[in-house]
Design a protein around this nucleic acid. Structure first.
Lengths: 221, 221
DNA sequence: GTCTATAAAGTGATAGAC
DNA sequence: GTCTATCACTTTATAGAC
């Protein structure tokens, strides 16, 4: 058909593959299904990629790199850290609810990567990106509300990611958005409690968040 | 080869399929791979099951029914609710670390079920079982420590499941058990804060866990 | 009941015409 | 560069001998 550069063809095929996986799963993403979605002939696939495995590799590296941290982006200005966290979590949750198949695909691709020796390093990298994105927002939110984190911000980011993953998985399973919102309320309260005002008169000694050290320092919390 | 009842053969094949999926993933669980693992001939598979799909259905229903809530079982006696929760989460986490492929398989089977119209109701059922198991332990732990939950126990159970799912997914991705333990410390503290002593002099009005209602009642937390 | 052999359909990948 | 046609292989499932 029409001429396309190899690069354009690769991009088009990767995007088609993503759409196919969203509908049929990784198992259904055969080369034939992908070229049908991209409206190309089967031979064009192997002109653009030497193998299906190479395409899957590029696809996964592509989604890991272009990770839309935009999900959290509604961290609008507020004087209240808890509200900022809650709104951020809600924004993320809304993205999942609006486009459930996107998260399904990310999950399937993560498992595919974990099973491929050549790609098994990518999920860890992806989680680092998640946390880095969350860290930026957490730092911004704290600064905007005159607070500071009592834990390393990367630890707080990991808590955020733990919650968003747990919310996503549960919603994919039971589609109970109301219940998820209640979890978000809890998470926002609990995470906000990990910060203190910058100008606190009695500064709490920044502790690791375990009881042993809390008791060592003479607090019972 | 040796004679087996159809029921025994089905059980043996289901168990073999689980082992194959643990090593190769759902994609690698072909009928040939399964009968090789079970040391049977290919024809025996179709003597026991009419189709591979029927076997997958039985396998998933089997793992959902026999869900080992044993994971949480180390909720030993303690006077301290936070410690009880922390130890329960640690016990669960240890199970994941000791047998990572088990959780991988559960995750893959959940996704397989979500993609199969005939099985898509099962993940919700599984999550209900998770929460039911957690609820029993939460009720027991609260009773043992003379506490009561300020939220419906099913909501607390959902929080627990959110955390365990998030922990599992992150660990499968980056294998950072130390970081996971820090999340557990946070979760134990935060969840324990959802209970109060049964004999509290000033009982807190049991509220939904959101700031709006907290402010309505005049508390700033 | 259990096997071997094979059918029927789908897969990734390639050859060769244009 | 792009196509059609096809190869070589694997898959699930079944037929038919024993």
């Amino acid at each position: 058909m029409t001429r396309m550069s190899a690069a354009d063809r690769r991009t088009a095929l990767i995007e088609a593959a993503f759409r196919v996986i969203a509908v049929e799963g990784v198992a259904g993403a055969t080369t034939r299904a992908i070229v049908a979605e991209a409206e190309m002939s089967l031979a064009s696939f192997h002109y653009a990629f030497t193998s299906r495995e190479e395409m899957m590799r590029d696809l996964i590296q592509h989604v890991v790199a272009n990770q839309a941290v935009a999900a959290y982006e509604s961290a609008r200005l507020t004087r209240d850290l808890r509200t900022a966290i809650r709104d951020g979590l809600r924004a993320f949750y809304q993205v999942v609810l609006d486009d459930p198949m996107h998260e399904e695909v990310m999950l399937e691709l993560m498992q595919y990567a974990l099973r491929s020796p050549a790609l098994s390093y990518l999920p860890a990298e992806q989680y680092e990106r998640y946390r880095a994105g969350a860290s930026v927002l957490l730092d911004t939110a704290a600064a905007d509300t005159g607070m500071e984190w009592l834990l390393p911000v990367d630890d707080v980011a990991r808590i955020i990611v733990t919650v968003t993953d747990g919310l996503t998985l549960a919603w994919l399973a039971d589609r109970d958005s109301e219940a998820g919102c209640r979890v978000i309320e809890f998470a926002a309260t609990s995470i906000a409690a990990l910060a203190q005002p910058l100008d606190a008169e009695h500064r709490v000694v920044p502790l690791r968040n375990d009881r042993a050290s809390a008791e060592r320092s003479g607090r019972t919390r």
